[in-house]
Amino acid sequence: MHELSIAVNLVDVAVREATEAGSEQVSKVRLRIGALSGVVRDALEFSFDIAAGGTIVEGAALEIEELPVVIHCPQCDADRELPDVFRFRCPVCGTPSADIRQGKELEITSLEIQ
């Protein structure tokens, strides 16, 4: 489980960004995590509270947007969303594709600060 290490990085970024913006309290952290980011949502939520303790992020809500994998299908010449991460084939025509257009994200998108 590396989510605690991810959560520590996440809190570091949030503290720095909020402090630079002149804030002393973060009330919400919004994230985007792709299905291929290697991060488990539950474990991250659990770790976040631990990592945030004693910082200006303590008590902040964590709002996670989960992004599915999108591949580009060379046959259809179109981007296609995959229902899971076990089958990298176009869901329309069945052509295999490793051309990933979305799904590796692991990023903070915004903070709600006081």
Partner: peptide, 8 residues
């Protein structure tokens, strides 16, 4: 709201 767009 503070827009961040920062990879963790």
């Amino acid at each position: 709201i503070l827009e961040v767009r920062h990879g963790i």
